[in-house]
């Protein structure tokens, strides 16, 4: 089953951020709590953790891109259980 990862709201004051680095590549195993990617907001660089356990399928955004809260950023394949 494919789960979508959307950009969370990381700053109470803004909905648009600067996408930093990916810490997981397509094909990588991810566990709940692993850092998936980094996003820069006005005050901080946030490391966003995975809410799922599975295999990262696809990146939907690239480093350096501007992202908006709610944007699809990745897909993760989780096993049915």
């Amino acid at each position: 089953m494919i789960k979508e990862v959307h950009m969370p709201k990381l700053s109470p004051k803004s909905n648009q951020y600067f996408f930093g680095e990916w810490l997981k590549e397509p094909g990588d195993k991810v566990s709940k709590g692993d850092v998936l990617f980094e996003v820069e907001t006005d005050k901080v660089v946030s490391q966003v953790e995975s809410q799922e356990t599975g295999v990262l399928k696809e990146h939907q955004v690239k480093s350096g891109q501007t992202v908006v809260v709610g944007d699809l950023v990745a897909t993760i394949e989780v096993s049915e259980s």
């Binding site: 969370p8 990381l10 709590g33 850092v35 980094e38 901080v44 660089v45 946030s46 490391q47 966003v48 953790e49 809410q51």
Partner: peptide, 10 residues
């Protein structure tokens, strides 16, 4: 200035 973020808890 890197911080972690758990969306569900927040």
């Amino acid at each position: 200035l890197k911080v972690t973020y758990d969306q569900k808890k927040v």
